[in-house]
């Protein structure tokens, strides 16, 4: 246990005053440790990693870790990341966004980043709510749920972020929850090693808001919900739509090859420069 905490400290910014801004029981910290573990395991140098985030609870993550960190604007992390990657393709560019960030205000950037296939690894921490602003409906809030902006129940259907990004052309799409930490680490590792645009959707609990709206009073209850409602891709293949209603399909959803923008541009530039 002692060893584990020391290991993470190697990647935390000692100069930044803790504690972090996340509520007790929040799922974002579990993701943060998983990300650090995988980066350490693969052995990237701190200097080559760039973490880009938008605005929201999960987007505060980069400030705590000792990489090149860019806390951008709401919904636009992928646009900043695209510039960073194309200006210096040697950098390992990772974006961290929330569900409102990536799928609502930044939805257009998300689908175009997937379509364009610039090599960016993106993580969407989906807690089904706008946490930082006080529990409003997000594009992944379940139909009918009461929130502060839908006091009589949410009238909108939620996005399936993973299927959206798959349809837009991402070469790697994975989904899991913060309860399934070994799988979370496997998916982070696969996405980091994949060439091209990859996205991993991470279902995480917001105890303060979505938990309260769902009638799940504690982080333990929320994570138990994740455990009980997650279905692996393999098992889901044998189930029909009715059986899958309300379930979360986890695992590798897409793994394919397509031309990668930055590599294609590099080829073009080398031809033009005749090098």
């Amino acid at each position: 246990m002692k060893e584990s905490s020391h290991f993470v400290h190697k990647y935390l910014r000692s100069s930044k005053r803790f504690p972090h801004i996340w509520c007790a029981g929040c799922g974002i910290g579990i993701f943060m440790q998983a990300l650090i573990r995988v980066i350490d395991k693969i052995g990237y140098s701190k200097d080559e990693v760039v973490l880009v985030s938008g605005i929201g609870c999960s987007s505060r993550l980069p400030v705590y870790v000792d990489f090149n960190t860019l806390h951008a604007t709401h919904g636009r992390a992928l646009t900043f990341a695209t510039g960073v990657k194309l200006a210096n393709p040697r950098l390992k560019v990772i974006t961290i966004m929330g569900d409102g960030d990536a799928a609502s205000i930044g939805g257009n950037h998300l689908i175009h980043a997937a379509r364009r296939n610039v090599e960016i690894v993106s993580f969407v921490i989906n807690n089904q709510v706008y946490g930082m602003t006080g529990g409003q409906s997000s594009p992944t809030t379940p139909y009918g749920l009461k929130t502060t902006s839908a006091p009589y129940g949410n009238l909108e259907a939620p996005f399936d972020i993973s299927r959206l990004v798959e349809a837009a052309g991402a070469v790697f799409v994975g989904r899991t929850t913060v309860y399934h930490t070994p799988q979370l680490e496997r998916l982070i590792e696969k996405s980091l090693k994949k060439d091209g645009f990859s996205m991993v959707e991470v279902l995480a609990q917001c105890v303060t808001y979505s938990g309260r709206w769902m009638g799940l009073a504690s982080p333990v209850e929320m994570m138990a919900w994740q455990r009980d409602n997650a279905i692996t891709v393999e098992k889901a293949a044998e189930m029909n739509e009715t059986e899958l209603a309300g379930k979360v399909v986890i695992g590798v959803l897409v793994d394919r090859e397509r031309p990668i923008y930055d590599k294609e541009y590099g080829k073009l530039a080398r031809e033009k420069l005749k090098v």
Binding site: V50, V52, L70, A72, T73, R76, L78, T79, F80, A81, T82, G83, V84, K85, L86, A87, N88, L91, N108, H109, H112
Partner: peptide, 19 residues
């Protein structure tokens, strides 16, 4: 880029990466 918001974000990112 997909719009002007993205264009402006991209040039900020590129500038931070040294261009």
């Amino acid at each position: 880029m997909e719009d002007e918001i993205a264009s402006m974000g991209a040039i900020i990112g590129a500038s931070l990466a040294g261009s």
